[in-house]
């Protein structure tokens, strides 16, 4: 009887010690879920989700916030997040859905730029070059298309321009190639018919 108690106590002490050691030694810093979520977010740092950047939104998602608030990521990101978190796939937020548009980058109409540096302060990824009273310009390669620079511009000289498709980024949608057969004569004939009808 007494031997059994001693044996169990000793075992409990040993395993408790091991567990305690492991808890300290192999402690996971931060929230691993937040990290994984952040990996899936598009990192535009646009704040359209209502959080000041992608990391804060990732942390909020890890704490149970809705996963459908990321317009730059679109429905694809929502699906990936749902897959990761094992939840139902919600539709992209209605307000965000309106904002879903082709990937664009900012463009500064340089002749209208007065060099106020307001857009530079707004840019979350330092993709705008310029100095006080000097014309600014966008580093197109670094621009994430977050549109945060558009609103602060006092002269409204920043516009969002969709990124043109090149032969290298072409999606091989052969049936999408615009084949325009323009026949002026027949076109006008058609119009006339329509008028008669």
């Amino acid at each position: 009887m007494i031997e059994a108690i001693i044996a169990l106590t000793v075992l409990a002490a040993i395993f408790g010690g091991i567990l305690g050691f492991a808890a300290i030694r192999y402690r996971v810093e931060g929230d691993p879920i937040a990290d994984q979520v952040e990996q899936l977010l598009p990192q535009t740092q646009c704040g359209q989700c209502g959080h000041p950047g992608c990391r804060p939104y990732a942390e909020a998602i890890a704490k149970g916030e809705a996963i459908n608030k990321c317009p730059p990521g679109g429905q694809e990101t929502v699906e990936k997040l749902a897959d990761l978190l094992g939840v139902e796939v919600p539709e992209l937020d209605a307000s965000a859905q309106e904002k879903e548009k082709p990937k664009s980058v900012a463009f500064i109409h340089e002749e209208a730029c007065i060099g106020c540096t307001k857009c530079i302060q707004a840019c979350p990824v330092d993709a705008i070059v310029g100095a006080n009273k000097q014309m600014h310009t966008i580093i197109t390669k670094e621009c994430t298309g977050c549109e945060l620079c558009v609103a602060p511009c006092p002269t409204d000289c920043i516009e969002m321009r969709p990124i043109a498709q090149t032969s290298r980024t072409w999606d091989w949608q052969l049936n999408k190639i615009d084949i325009a057969v323009i026949d002026v004569a027949s076109g006008s004939a058609k119009l006339e018919e329509a008028d008669n009808a």
Binding site: Q43, G53, V125, E142, T144, D171
Partner: peptide
């Protein structure tokens, strides 16, 4: 395959861009 490859490449490109944007954001 070509279409899917283009999609994969686009996804890779996005991931790269996201990584770079994150780095720049953190640096800022």
């Amino acid at each position: 395959y070509r279409q899917t490859k283009a999609k994969v490449r686009a996804e890779d490109l996005l991931a790269q861009e996201a990584e770079r944007a994150k780095q720049r954001f953190d640096a800022r």
